[in-house]
Design a protein around this nucleic acid. Structure first.
Ligand SMILES: [Mn+2]
Ligand SMILES: [Mn+2]
Ligand SMILES: [Zn+2]
Ligand SMILES: [Zn+2]
Lengths: 150, 150
DNA sequence: TCCTTAGTGAGAATGATTCTCAGATGCACG
DNA sequence: CGTGCATCTGAGAATCATTCTCACTAAGGA
């Protein structure tokens, strides 16, 4: 179904899963991830994939989320009501995410952790090995909606 | 027991709890928080307080952690094995935390989210309302320990 | 001192996530 | 193309951090 839609360098549905095996369930889950567009919980992803492909178990969705995260295709972007939120991650260069708390859309942002912060950490005796940065806010549409609601 | 140890502006044991009531259990919990020094889970805090003050329930510790967090005296600094890590927060000006993954010590760091990042978010149509930043690394002692272990 | 109400402890409940297990199936290799 | 086997799957049980319930106690303002 995709023979001539994409150049060879653009994987059509699959390669959110790195090296691991590509089953029918995982193909459906990858499709659902793409259709959701923004941030989602594992349960929401399960609901989305179930709408078009019945019979996929929730454990399979959790395992797929873990596999996609390990492959770097998914990134955790906070939590909602005790459930972890995930979003499709562009990959490539190092970056972080800005999540609309209204609709869940996500955009990549450049990393604000710079040499000056790292050197001030170093002067406190620390070697920084990792960091987490996530921004939250409202996209234009959600901000407009919130404004007219007064 | 603290009549003349501190000037009036330095609360002796209590005021991690903002405006709320100061019970014996909460006094003991505040003391345990101080004795732990670094990052801790609710269970670890419960164990620490239980060592010196038997009979305090785990639910009370969870409630105390929530109260201290609401008062701004405690900040979440990541998680370990599925449990949230908390640390005493200096309060005052806006800052974030750098946690030693070896021993759990925490230091405050200046906020790296600057106007340029916010304006690039704005040019993407987003209004930023909140952000989370946490750094992880090794303190001098833990780095030395890791180095000699080769 | 009294009263109101927030805080407490024990245990049950909740709920997200992980695990177990027997069966199915990608896919590398010949 | 087969075959073999490691990986994946679905159902349900299990785990376990955190929250809730409830009867009771005790801050602390009046
Ligand atoms: Mn990304
Ligand atoms: Mn702090
Ligand atoms: Zn970064
Ligand atoms: Zn900040």
């Amino acid at each position: 179904m995709s023979e001539h839609h994409h150049p060879v360098s653009a994987p059509c549905a699959g390669d959110l899963f790195g090296g691991s095996r590509l089953s029918a369930a995982r193909r459906a889950i990858a499709e659902a991830v793409r259709s959701l567009g923004g941030a989602f919980t594992a349960e929401e992803l399960h609901a989305a994939v179930s709408a078009t492909h019945a019979g996929i178990g929730v454990a399979t969705v959790y395992r797929a989320v873990a596999a996609m995260s390990a492959a770097g295709a998914l990134a955790p972007v906070g939590s909602r009501d005790g459930s972890t939120l995930y979003a499709l991650c562009a990959g490539g260069d190092h970056h972080h995410h800005l999540v609309c708390t209204g609709c869940g859309t996500v955009v990549g942002i450049e990393c604000p952790v710079d040499g000056s912060l790292l050197s001030s950490a170093k002067s406190a005796g620390y070697t920084v090995t990792a960091h987490e940065v996530t921004l939250y806010g409202l996209c234009a549409a959600c901000a407009a909606c919130a404004a007219e609601r007064d």
